[in-house]
Design a protein around this nucleic acid. Structure first.
Lengths: 212, 212
DNA sequence: CACCGATCTGAACGGTGTCAACATTATCTT
DNA sequence: AAGATAATGTTGACACCGTTCAGATCGGTG
């Protein structure tokens, strides 16, 4: 029983406010930045009174978490797509890294919200551990690229390392200081590829002996 | 002509409000988190009216920037110290990485403020490029460890890579998901060392040929 | 139909960033 | 030393924010 599809008619009950609030939040986030994302502004954008959101989210933080969750899911999709389109296992790892950073760069406010939310709870969102998450894809791509699937410890360390590297690059690549380098390398994506390559986890070869 | 050293006597003029405001801000940051850091609270903590800070900082953002700058300078000191205490060049790089992450973990709210401030202006603070900055130390440590001091491009890429890796680790190491791993490795510092080692930039050996 | 729970509104509270007008003090000029 | 001027502080106000609560409205269930 769908309603609320006619923007002219405003019913007392919205019909699908939760979703509308999350979408409104994302719109504000992208168009006006994190500073402008107030609960009241979200309610306004959704055409509803300032108190209405409290029937769907207990907090402002709760809404932010919901927005962040959407972001994490889309990141997972982007990573999965990048992986599936790669010609070989090695390229898959590189593409995942680039896709990760690109997502962060294309949705900067959303990405920041995602990590703020994660840092506040000192944990990645539950979704990160689920089947279609980016995390899982990195792990599997590492195995495809030659990591020992039985060495659980090594596998987790490598996944963490790759994720950390991508996160670091994602948050720093926008700095102005790097503009000349980006230009020299022929664009931001090339720059990202080069840094990720330097960070090494993606290009790592097995150590001959112990560790040096 | 020093005054304001007697906490009982409150003069109309404070004497060194800028500094007092920054210190008050840091105190609030550490003790109550970034959410509690309001301009009014800072003014209150400094024993001054809510409008007084505007004679020293044009914005709340401006005060945050000042706080962040202090953080960057202390980070630089920590990195320098870690580097100078290392037995050899290779250890210096590792120690820098660990010191960086430790600083972030010991001053989480400050570290977050530092990066928020940097991201807002899409640039590292000017200080990062100066003589005693962490950035400069990483660069020099890379040279000490064998990087070609004449290959400016390579050098800058390596520095960026190392910095990105450290930043990524710094922000993710606190996640609860990693508690078991930390315990297995014997504490957080060991965990950090292991990840940084995995991320590879610190342990990188020259590529035999072109790139694969 | 009567009722109930879910949903939305309106008004209110304390807190916030910021500004303008005014008070006080420090400093410089003469 | 005296008075002008700039620096620094205060008070009060405005708009906005997160949040709560009492009441209005609506969808569905007996």
């Amino acid at each position: 029983m769908a309603q609320s599809h006619d923007p002219e008619i405003r019913r007392y009950h919205h019909g699908d406010l939760s979703r509308a609030l999350v979408q409104a939040g994302r719109r504000i986030l992208e168009s006006e930045g994190p500073q402008a994302l107030s609960l009241r502004a979200v309610a306004r954008e959704a055409g509803v009174s300032p108190a209405a959101p409290y029937h769907h989210f207990k907090d402002k933080c709760d809404l932010l978490t919901a927005i962040a969750k959407e972001g994490w899911m889309e990141l997972g999709v982007a990573v999965a797509k990048a992986r599936s389109q790669a010609p070989d296992a090695r390229a898959a790892l590189n593409n995942i890294g680039v896709a990760y950073v690109c997502f962060a760069r294309e949705n900067p406010a959303l990405y920041r919200t995602m990590y703020d939310s994660a840092c506040d709870q000192a944990a990645m969102p539950d979704h990160a551990k689920e089947a279609d998450s980016g995390w899982r894809h990195v792990r599997e791509a590492l195995i495809d690229a030659g990591a020992d699937p039985n060495d659980e410890h090594e596998l987790e360390m490598a996944t963490i390392g790759a994720w950390c590297a991508a996160h670091g690059v994602a948050e720093m690549v926008g700095f102005r200081e790097f503009e000349p380098l980006k230009a020299a390398l022929g664009g931001e994506e090339a720059f990202v590829r080069a840094i990720l390559d330097h960070v090494g986890i993606y290009a790592r070869r097995p150590m001959p002996s112990g560790r040096d």
